[in-house]
Amino acid sequence: MKFEPLTESYFYILLCLYDGPNHGYGIMQDVLQLSDNRLRIGSGTMYGAVSNMIKKGWIIEIKGSDEDRRKRLYKLTDQGYEILSNEVIRLNELVQNASKVMGR
């Protein structure tokens, strides 16, 4: 499998599913909080990312519990987990190499 760098939006959506299933609004809120209000994922961007990642098999939609049956819940698949882990390794490498060159 070939890994390509993820966009920030894709990365954060996957990250916000790491701890367990989450719904669209929850993801948006978590991303906002994690990024200190810097990154907001709008509906158009969210739909593009979610539908694409479902197609790629990185996330799946699951049935919610009774209270939020109406909300769609998304869950990370094994493949999605692998994509996310590999991206974190890649990002770490970038930062380490930057530190080496910039001498910090």
Partner: peptide, 16 residues
């Protein structure tokens, strides 16, 4: 204003 933006990154606006 961001409340009313639906494409929040370059990649997705170019895709649209």
């Amino acid at each position: 204003e961001e409340e009313y933006i639906v494409y929040t990154d370059r990649t997705s606006i170019i895709e649209m």
